[in-house]
Design a protein around this nucleic acid. Structure first.
Lengths: 195, 195
DNA sequence: TGTACATCAGTGAACGCGCGTTCACTGATGTAC
DNA sequence: TGTACATCAGTGAACGCGCGTTCACTGATGTAC
């Protein structure tokens, strides 16, 4: 039952989107190809018409998540430059912590990335550098280039660490989890120079 | 073939240690009970004489890792107070990044914790607060209590985020990975007040 | 434009395998007398 | 101290299940004439 090229491309995108969402919610090792295919409205066999393996799908799903993050960052644009305070408020909101499916793909799988295929790690690196670049560009207005780069690297690592710690502590100690989000928002905001 | 109480306790500890090591290396979802038991010199059936489930073993393995971290922190003690600069140098060393089995249990599984049993999350919370307490105590020498707490929360989140990002980027871009470790060491060192 | 046929996205059964967990059984240890 | 027996850590087969991947087949689409 061959289908149109357009429909096939839609199906491919549905697989990538479903995989990204489920991987964020339950981890790459925590979801099977059958469930991903079903969520995309297909059978698992169809997945292998589009991707050679689950690993390849994972890499593409992370790339899609990274592209989503880039688009989201630019939603906060004012005069073509993202308002990083607004971005921080969004990134470190309790709502973002509690809705991991809608959050940052890099943070959702951070500690799993090092154990995956190199292709998956490469997509993570791209996404990380993309965020770092936005903060670096902002910091160059008030700091020498070296320092701007250095602080940007730490800020993004602290964001990923902050939301990850907030998620890890949320079930057993929600007040602490909220406190971590507030603290990171405050200290990173200062580090970035009262954005 | 009943064995002595002492030997049984040794076996229990071997299971906890093997589980901790393998979970750090390959993730909680990435290792099965058979392999853990074998690494401890037992069969999988014996595991269930000590623990009701894999989840319970995971919680105990993380608790053991947290205790190891506490002991390691106090290895850097000078006059009963840990030398945090030395601790930072160790925590963010490229050797620590490359030897995850010997590294921080919280960082190794950070993004997986939120998806595990609440008991696992509770052990993470204890370990996180333990590290936060050490930095908080140090910072109170130069900052008001509120700020000391806030900065300590961010510092430990940045450490976990930093080593996790360094591991995620190491395979595809090792220069960046090294740069992240250096940057976090530098900025966190400054944040902690030129320790 | 109409016809004949090759293409290929998608289906669903089947592959071998490892998963977490249960359980009847073993036999040396620990205990009660 | 010596004997009889209950205890229980550990064994290994078996449970049902889901995993990632393969493959023969389907049939509408896309293409060549």
């Amino acid at each position: 039952m061959r289908i149109t090229k357009e429909k096939a491309e839609e199906n491919r995108q549905a697989l990538v989107r479903a995989a990204g969402l489920l991987f964020r919610e339950r981890g790459i090792d925590g979801v099977g190809v059958a469930e991903i295919s079903k969520a995309a409205g297909l059978t698992h066999g169809a997945l292998y018409a589009h991707f050679p393996s689950k690993d390849a799908l994972a890499a593409e799903a992370l790339a899609h998540g990274v592209e989503r993050a880039r688009a989201r960052l630019h939603k906060f644009d004012v005069d073509g430059v993202p308002d990083l305070t607004e971005f921080l408020n969004y990134y470190l909101a309790p709502e973002t912590r509690d809705n991991i499916a809608n959050g940052c793909a890099m943070a959702a799988s951070a500690s799993e990335i090092g154990r995956q295929d190199q292709a998956v790690g490469a997509r993570f690196t791209e996404g990380y550098l993309n965020l770092v670049g936005a903060f670096e560009h902002h910091l160059q207005q008030s700091l020498p280039a070296d320092n701007a780069r250095k602080q940007a690297l730490v800020i993004v690592a602290a964001l990923i660490g902050g939301i990850t710690v907030a998620r890890a502590t949320a079930k057993s100690h929600v007040e602490l989890s909220d406190e971590v989000l507030d603290a990171v928002r405050g200290v990173v905001g200062e580090l970035a120079g009262k954005l």
